Measured scan of single mutants.
Amino acid sequence: MFYPNSPQTSPQLTQIPYGQQYAMMQRQIQQPYHPFATTEPQARLYPYHYQGPIQQEQGGFITQQSTAASPQYVQMRVTPVDQSIMSGYPNQTANGSSSSSFNYNIHPQQQQQQQQQQQQLRHHAMPVGSVPLQDDRYRKQLIVNYLAPDVTSTDLHELFSRFGELDGARIIYDKQTNMSKGYGFVYFCHAEDAKEAVERMSGYEFHGKWLKVGYSTNPLNIVPSNSSPYVHAGSRGAAG
């Protein structure tokens, strides 16, 4: 039997160049792979992502010199942007860049009308829970959420009447099932009393439920100042 490094198959040491006398086997001759043993700084910083320098080929596509990437890492192929796409944008300079302001050559009167329309939209648009300043009635009506099913309009009136005089209180019921929808409205005579009720009743436990109280901004629920107070009856038909 002959071994790869046996004296019968191995040459004389004098015939082997210096430095390879003890590297006779194939696994010894093959050098191990060192990912950080390279002179390129990109490979030292990113050993798993770097795959060699990027070269520009004919046709405008950018390719990489090395083989496919590892399945664990996804390499994105980048193509140059066609400058003709950006030619339609206004205020574009000769080098292809555009300024931040756009001039669509709008007539001054049209621009003024658009600004007025935007101001009107901001004036009428009102986020949930906010209180408008032009109508004091919005500051007097509250919406009470997360009410228990057994709470009546009379219970709601008695709960909030300790903060001040009320114009009314009612629970909203479903017309088909005649069941409470879980929320109601309270109408105060003074805005200061309503503000105190919002601050003190939010998070209050009532009939096993934690109440959420806020201003009601729905104009359909506003009680006119010259109208008669609501009837605080315990029956659902009268309260709904």
Rank of each mutant, 00 (worst) to 15 (best):
Q64P: 09
P132M: 14
H232W: 15
N5K: 14
F61M: 14
K209Q: 02
R44Q: 05
Y215W: 03
S10K: 14
S228W: 13
W210R: 02
F61K: 15
A37R: 14
T38G: 12
M86D: 03
H123A: 07
M25H: 13
Q26S: 13
S228F: 14
S180W: 01
Q113H: 09
R236L: 07
G208V: 02
D155E: 12
G19Y: 05
L121K: 10
S101G: 10
G182T: 02
Y48Q: 15
Y22S: 12
G60A: 10
L159P: 02
S153I: 05
G164R: 00
R44F: 01
Q58F: 04
G237M: 11
Y50I: 10
T38K: 15
E192T: 11
S130Y: 10
L13T: 13
H232E: 03
S180A: 10
T177M: 08
A68T: 09
S97V: 08
S6T: 10
V186R: 01
E57H: 11
Y33T: 15
V223R: 11
Q12P: 11
Y50C: 12
Q30M: 02
I85T: 13
Q31L: 04
W210H: 03
P35G: 06
Y215R: 02
Q112T: 08
I172R: 01
L147M: 02
G234A: 10
S99K: 15
A233L: 12
Q176Y: 15
Q134C: 11
Q120D: 04
F188Q: 02
G19V: 07
Y183W: 00
Y89G: 11
P90C: 09
V144A: 01
S153H: 15
G129Q: 06
Q42A: 05
S87P: 06
P80Y: 11
Y187D: 01
I222S: 02
S99Y: 14
G88S: 09
I54Q: 13
G237P: 06
R137I: 03
P53A: 10
N221P: 07
D167T: 02
F206C: 03
Q65P: 09
H190K: 12
M76N: 14
S84A: 11
M201N: 01
P132W: 02
Q114A: 09
Y3Q: 14
M179N: 04
S97K: 13
Q58V: 06
I16T: 14
Q55H: 07
V131S: 07
K181M: 10
A238S: 09
Q115P: 07
V223D: 02
G129S: 08
G237W: 14
Y48I: 09
N145V: 02
S153L: 04
L156E: 00
M201K: 02
T177Q: 06
Y18E: 07
A125F: 13
P127Y: 13
T63L: 03
V223Q: 06
S225Y: 10
S87K: 14
I62A: 09
I62H: 12
R139A: 05
S202H: 05
Q110W: 10
V81D: 11
H123S: 08
T9F: 05
A191V: 13
R27N: 03
A23M: 06
Q21Y: 03
Q119V: 11
G52V: 06
G182R: 04
V213M: 02
G240F: 09
R27C: 02
M25N: 12
Q83C: 03
H190F: 04
N103A: 06
A238F: 14
H157K: 10
A148D: 03
M25S: 12
P132I: 05
Y230K: 05
R137M: 02
T63F: 03
Y204I: 15
N218H: 03
P4V: 03
P127D: 10
Q117K: 10
S99L: 07
T93L: 06
S235N: 11
P132N: 10
V231P: 11
Y204C: 13
I29M: 10
V144F: 01
Y215N: 01
I172H: 01
G182M: 03
N95E: 04
V231W: 14
F61T: 13
Y138H: 11
K195P: 02
F2G: 11
I106T: 09
Y48S: 15
Y138A: 03
E57Y: 08
D82S: 12
Q134V: 12
T154S: 06
A37M: 03
H124Y: 14
T9R: 13
S235G: 11
P219R: 00
T67V: 08
Q109F: 08
T152H: 15
T217W: 02
Q72M: 02
G96R: 14
E158L: 13
P80K: 12
P17R: 10
N178P: 02
T14L: 04
T38Q: 11
L121E: 04
A68Q: 04
Q42M: 04
E40Y: 07
R27D: 03
Q118W: 11
G203A: 02
S180Q: 02
N226C: 09
Y3L: 08
P149I: 10
L142W: 01
Q55C: 08
F163T: 02
I171A: 03
Q56E: 10
G234W: 13
F188T: 00
L156V: 06
G164L: 01
Q12L: 07
R27Y: 02
Q15S: 09
A69H: 11
Q72W: 04
P32Q: 11
Q113A: 09
